[in-house]
Design a binder for these strands. Structure first.
Lengths: 193, 193, 193, 193
DNA sequence: CATGAATGAGTTTTCATTCAT
DNA sequence: GATGAATGAAAACTCATTCAT
């Protein structure tokens, strides 16, 4: 009736396979165009098995998103410890690299983050991410002007999604990424003049 | 494929109302979650009337997108004439303002431009927009380094979409917009050192 | 989206056919065992047509029930006018005949009246029926003891459902009906001694 | 078809718990709306365990019904011995009390006895109950008119179910029960005039 | 041009039942 | 005996699209 956390090893493997299948399809075709039947099939499972663990398609997306967000959050935590007292531009650079790697390895995160019609859960998740990044910038030395940490917490993650649209244009994509990186770095350096 | 061009005035008004209704709904609920019946109803028309002008839902979205893109293209053309010989930062500033106004007045453009599963038409439209913006930067004085105009043509439109997510947080939204503007301006100034 | 009342003659005929089909199947196999597909098929309609008028299976049952209840209510109203000043036993007899005919011509009423899991709408409908029958007995001459009208309003409709279970045993069924009739009549006569 | 008779004491307790769980749920939500998973869960057992004892959902219902019917049958047998030569009204009174207690303590009996789509087993069970009650009335002194015992065997059990619908209206419920009792008693007294 | 009833393929979701452990 | 993951047929429901009026 209710989806339950799998209690045996086989179950945990199943869940992982289902989430991987769903992630890949969501990225390839988008949330709406992906069917639950397709997700189950690609994972080699029956449709009923999928619903055994995820009561709705939306819940499945949420589970994937939560897992990705958890991973991102942990990485940001780790960065937080190393970033104390660094210059703003150095923090930006480190964050840039972290996020760049993350969006590459977790494409479903970007694909699922702004589906229409949420208003609740996802908003909170984005809020937490913003707080975490703002805290990162808040410990820069010299300190940033008031409010800038919060603004950067909004901007930087979005910057990282820009190159994602350039699949198949690798040259341009790398150039854009570097352009963004340098733009952000200079922005934070210049402010210290 | 193409909507039959309505010959009568009444017909043209009908089409405008249908496209306005569709645009609003696409923005509010997303393309997939919006039904053709709903679109017709909000425009005060019957479902059959909607299909009289737009043979498929996709064609309707394309018509809206084409109209918006036409408007954007015309505005960029106008800017092109005024921008000859301007400094890069000045061009960026002008483009920034133009795009900022455009995404505000044409929210459907952003909502429809990057639907998943896109292999053709939309990709071309984005390509044309990139060329137009690149051409704008190409006439800056002093000239930009090789390839930067193309990279900016990718980046700047995406920057403008960042504040869109901040509905209901007006203070932050305005701050973010200004932060982006100054970041871009400095980026282009610094390069001239 | 929302089910609408049909606006043309064809539509009204369709709705009638669908309700007739559903009524018959609910009586034959019960509410749960009847599928929407089956209902549509028996009415010669597509499944989508059924959902055009009734948004859920429950709503379909309710519409049937409401129509039947409306009919019963009207018949009870008519009886009310003729029953003023009659003896209790005479009222009972008339009511008995009315209800006997009704359950025979509206078998879906009994089949749908006490589905599990309602708590709301059906309760109100039964309440109204009780009030109407109680009002009928309330005008008997001589008057009934306090509260008896309300008790009879509960009892009599249920009595009428007893013979329904005896399909295929016509002899017994008729005997049971007559036994119930006389039992009720005597009960009300005796009270006047 | 038949549940494997559990050999161990633990097994018998298990079966009892499962049947109790199922009975309660069948009464609360109806047969169709109750799931096998739910039944097992409420009994604190695994779904596999439930199927260990009952091969199908229908078999489970039958087992419950059979047990209840067994109990009722035994009680009617006991009454049979005490009722020889009693007046019809006295028999009716005793039966009334017996059945009233029974439907109160065995609510699943009523809930399961007349599921729709019934062509076999349940029909026979009802038939046996009718015969037993008819036999009870058959030994009344003075004897009842021909056929009346059979008719009462149909009527009396149904009368007892009428107050069941009045949960939460205790006052009315008790009044209705008494009204039915007296109606039946007078009916049988009057006939002897 | 306009209407809205009608269609039916496609999707999500449920649940009785099986079976490997 | 006991478990619970796994199955998949079947049901409810949606909606883009068609077409007779």
């Amino acid at each position: 009736m209710n989806p339950r956390a799998p209690q045996q090893k086989r179950g945990r493997e199943r869940v992982a396979a289902l989430m991987a299948s769903a992630s890949a399809l969501f990225v390839e075709k988008g949330f709406d165009a992906t069917t639950m039947t397709e997700i189950a099939a690609r994972a080699g499972a029956a449709i009923g098995t999928l619903y055994l663990f995820f009561p709705t398609k939306e819940a499945l997306a949420q589970a994937i998103l939560a897992e990705n967000a958890e991973s991102l959050s942990a990485q940001l935590d780790a960065l937080q410890e190393q970033a104390t007292g660094l210059a703003p531009a150095a923090i930006a650079d480190a964050l840039f690299e972290l996020l760049g790697r993350f969006v590459g390895t977790h494409p479903a995160y970007s694909a699922l983050l702004d589906l229409p019609g949420d208003e609740g859960w996802r908003r909170k998740m984005r809020g937490r991410r913003r707080e975490q990044i703002a805290a990162l910038f808040a410990q820069a030395e010299p300190p940033l002007p008031a409010g800038q940490a919060e603004r950067l917490a909004v901007i930087v993650p979005q910057l990282m999604r820009i190159p994602l649209a350039l699949v198949g244009e690798k040259r341009l994509r790398d150039g854009v990424l570097e352009e963004l990186r340098s733009m952000l770095a200079r922005h934070l350096e210049v402010d210290t003049d």
